[in-house]
């Protein structure tokens, strides 16, 4: 669409994703919206599934059936990380005190962003895939190469990304997710992960984690590290939301405060 004459170029919003056509009577209201060329309300709304649309938003192309199906499997697997998960507990902390809904999800995002089972771990997993591909000797180097020299807000990595440092053997839900993702023959990295899981677990000295499965699946979908980090943050929010709402309704008296388990080390 051509820009209006009175809007200077430097104040324009540049995008390859989204296009709008204004109402005749109000230039601030869209008459039609297009995502990567598809009419969102006149076409996609009738024909596309949520996961086809989600894929389109990130990749700007219509997915193959296996791609939207794989994305949906990942979404179901991580939609509720469970009531004990750190990000869900953060959301419940917000809920139980009567915090705002947005702060509840912000709490889940902040904690779910982390490097232990969180989105930054998926980011790291994708970067390992990018540099190692399906070369086990490279994985051998990368999985134990924990860079401690970062000068930013992220604390240093303490375990091999994609593997659970607190696990003993690979959990059944993770194995089942892996097998379910492998129903798609096109998911080559998932298949390679199944073949090499035990070797990789030996290198990492820890069992495969959900972040490792998700990383392989999202790499199969051609999502880069930042896209994968974002998708993982988005997809894990439903569980955080419902558990927070449930705890809010039950009230703080039924929620752990760890009153007798907290000890202060007198250092002074």
């Amino acid at each position: 669409m051509q820009m209006e004459d009175d809007i200077s170029k430097k104040d324009a919003l540049h995008t390859k994703i989204w296009q709008e056509e204004p109402q005749d009577e109000n230039p601030f209201v869209a008459q039609a919206c297009f995502c990567s060329g598809y009419d969102v309300y006149e076409d996609l709304l009738q024909k596309a599934s949520w996961f086809e649309y989600l894929y389109l938003l990130f990749k700007l192309e219509k997915p193959q059936p296996w791609q939207s199906s794989l994305l949906e499997k990942v979404a179901i697997a991580v939609a509720n990380p469970g009531i004990r998960d750190h990000s869900v507990r953060a959301a419940m902390n917000a809920g139980v005190g009567g915090s705002t809904s947005a702060s509840t999800l912000m709490a889940a995002l902040a904690v779910g962003a982390g490097q232990l089972g969180g989105a930054r771990e998926v980011y790291s997993v994708i970067n390992i895939w990018k540099s190692c591909q399906q070369d086990i000797s490279k994985w051998n180097e990368q999985l134990i190469d924990l860079d401690k020299s970062n000068i930013d807000g992220w604390p240093a990595k303490e375990h091999s990304p994609g593997f659970d440092p607190n696990g003993v053997t690979c959990a059944q839900p993770i194995l089942t997710t892996l097998a379910s993702c492998a129903e798609h023959k096109e998911a080559a990295n998932i298949h390679w992960l199944i073949t090499n899981r035990l070797k990789l677990e030996e290198i990492a000295k820890a069992p495969l984690a959900m972040s490792g499965v998700v990383g392989a699946a999202l790499h199969d979908l051609g999502l880069n590290a930042e896209q994968s980090e974002m998708i993982y943050l988005i997809l894990r929010l439903p569980g955080a939301a419902v558990h927070a709402l449930e705890q809010k309704a039950m009230g703080w008296k039924k929620y752990p405060f760890y009153l007798d388990k907290f000890h202060i080390d007198q250092v002074s």
Partner: peptide, 18 residues
């Protein structure tokens, strides 16, 4: 700073049907 539809400088795919 409200933003009108014309402020979008779109450079993506041409219009197409799903």
């Amino acid at each position: 700073f409200p933003s009108q539809c014309g402020a979008i400088n779109y450079s993506g795919n041409e219009k197409r049907t799903w």
